[in-house]
Amino acid sequence: MACFIVPAAEAIVTTIAAKVLKKHEVSQKISHSGSHDEIIEKTSFSRKLGWLNNLLWGGSALLALEHVWHGEVVPWFPFLTAAGDPESKAEMLHEMSTVGVTMALLVTAVWAGMVIVSSVLEKKAAKLKLAANKK
């Protein structure tokens, strides 16, 4: 009915967070006195947050199309057909709190897994680079 609204709301929050974080990361200056070989590049957290934004915005947009397809979203106020009568409204809110929240949680959990895997890979690569430089 309107389950995509929950991940879309999360996407708004994470997009703002990514923008703020990116500004903060740009303002930070990094100085390094060693050789270029000793520099280990890491994916910034704002970029990793960008993955979550793409997952949430993309998923919400495609799900919104499905809701338009089924006539659950209309281009006139109140935009959601279920918001018209109280019974459908209650059903819609129930769906948002169950299906919508689960969608947002699953996408966030998958993203957290991606972040953990990329951090582990980056640490491994850094260790290998340091070992190679010592030799």
């Binding site: 793409n54 997952l55 993309g58 998923g59 947009a61 799900l63 299906v99 699953l106």
Partner: peptide, 14 residues
């Protein structure tokens, strides 16, 4: 690919 994976995860829940 992230756009499609996002939608796939959401439809899996559905």
């Amino acid at each position: 690919s992230l756009i499609y994976w996002g939608a796939s995860l959401m439809w899996t829940v559905d």
